[in-house]
Simulated scan of single mutants.
Amino acid sequence: MHLRSRLSISHIYNLNLTYFKRTFHTSFCGLKGLDILFFGSDEFSRECFRSVDDLAASSSSVVHKLEVVTRPPKRNGRDRSTSSQTVEVPLAPFARERNRTVHFVETKQDFENIQTLSYDLLVVVSYGKLIPAQLITRTKYGGINLHPSLLPRHSGAAPLQAAILDNDEFSGVTIQTLHPTQFDRGSILMQSLPVRLSLDETSKSLGQRLSKVGADMLREFLKTLSEYIDKHPNDEGPEIVIDSFKTNSEEIRLLPRTWTKKIDSRARHINWATDSASTIERKWRAFGLPLWTEIRYFDRHNQTAHLSRRAILEDITIVDNMGSIPSLEVGSIPNLPGQYLRLGPGKQFFAQTVVRTCDGKLLLVQMKQEKVRGKSLVDSDIFDLSSHK
């Protein structure tokens, strides 16, 4: 299952290409340092912000001023009612703990409000919204974005999940300029060396590893930019950012462009007619649990067959050795994709269940008990899990 049809390192870089670094001066000839507005939201951006904030604390000649823009708190729960609790994105409380000003920006008016402020550079990491062109052009050196993939591969909203779903062998981090009208269409300035994915890599573990790579890259980027500005005091405009990394960007061999979509509930759906065991396992590692599927059942009251209800998969294990499941009898093993056998005392629907995948493998899944028209599915005549939607 772990044999990968994967992206080879030879497709990514010439073997003589190394991580781009320079030797930095300990001082920048009296340079004031950059006034930075940092856009972010999640744990990945929090780690990158930490790096910039540490740099600001240790070297005011590189970062003179640092403020944060993030998404406003959202109400938790399905109903989103006024009585439900609001939850902040991870970056907001962390930035406040470090005594940084936090701006909550979501709407067009919010963006217009922060355009009255003056900054040298916009730094965007996992913010989730397109930065308006007017804000970019009003900023002295424009803006940059740190993206957790080797662009242009996995451009878009979910690069971490895409790397796992596509069974990539390597990923990495890219720093690019901000494009005024599109995501991930800027000039590529820096890329990390390829980062190898482990066989059991999850989007969470990959994000944690790439956030550290990105944090180091961002720190080196700001040092390099500050050094270049110090050496070219009469140059102005966003071109400075591109010019300061021109030599490096010319050495980067770009991968073919691919696009990732924003994750919605359909991405977590298991279709037993088309999803192999390895595909299901990658969905689990990419999106986490729970995943979901459909249950077909027979309504004995209305004598209606093959109605469908959603069932939640709360745990998934590929069965490599049927002997490891004592209660699994050979004659009762499911044969067709989506057919299943419930295990355990009383064969409760929420107990462990063995399901056949379309490539002939068996999965051991844990399903959450659902309700159908006010009664539990365990009281219904269940057919199978086959879904041909």
Results as ranks from 00 to 15, higher is better:
residue 126 S to M: 01
residue 102 V to L: 07
residue 40 G to R: 04
residue 117 L to A: 14
residue 91 L to M: 08
residue 125 V to Q: 07
residue 100 R to Y: 02
residue 130 L to W: 09
residue 100 R to E: 05
residue 109 Q to P: 02
residue 31 L to E: 13
residue 114 I to D: 02
residue 147 H to Y: 04
residue 69 V to S: 01
residue 67 E to V: 05
residue 74 K to G: 08
residue 152 P to Q: 02
residue 58 S to R: 14
residue 150 L to A: 00
residue 44 F to G: 01
residue 74 K to W: 10
residue 59 S to F: 12
residue 91 L to T: 04
residue 43 E to A: 13
residue 70 T to F: 01
residue 144 I to E: 12
residue 119 Y to R: 15
residue 107 T to N: 04
residue 160 L to C: 13
residue 119 Y to M: 08
residue 44 F to E: 03
residue 154 H to T: 04
residue 63 V to K: 03
residue 80 R to A: 13
residue 56 A to N: 14
residue 32 K to Q: 15
residue 64 H to W: 12
residue 77 G to H: 08
residue 47 E to Y: 01
residue 68 V to N: 02
residue 126 S to E: 09
residue 63 V to D: 02
residue 87 V to K: 12
residue 30 G to A: 06
residue 83 S to T: 15
residue 72 P to T: 05
residue 63 V to C: 09
residue 141 Y to K: 04
residue 48 C to W: 00
residue 143 G to D: 02
residue 66 L to D: 09
residue 49 F to R: 04
residue 33 G to C: 12
residue 53 D to C: 15
residue 142 G to P: 13
residue 155 S to C: 13
residue 107 T to W: 05
residue 115 Q to V: 03
residue 126 S to Q: 10
residue 155 S to E: 03
residue 106 E to F: 11
residue 125 V to Y: 03
residue 88 E to C: 05
residue 129 K to I: 06
residue 41 S to N: 13
residue 142 G to S: 14
residue 153 R to Y: 00
residue 116 T to S: 13
residue 87 V to E: 15
residue 101 T to I: 15
residue 129 K to A: 14
residue 114 I to K: 10
residue 44 F to R: 02
residue 80 R to W: 07
residue 118 S to C: 06
residue 119 Y to A: 06
residue 35 D to S: 10
residue 69 V to R: 07
residue 104 F to D: 10
residue 87 V to R: 12
residue 93 P to H: 04
residue 128 G to L: 03
residue 95 A to T: 04
residue 150 L to P: 04
residue 137 T to C: 11
residue 95 A to N: 09
residue 53 D to Y: 15
residue 133 A to V: 07
residue 57 A to H: 07
residue 90 P to H: 10
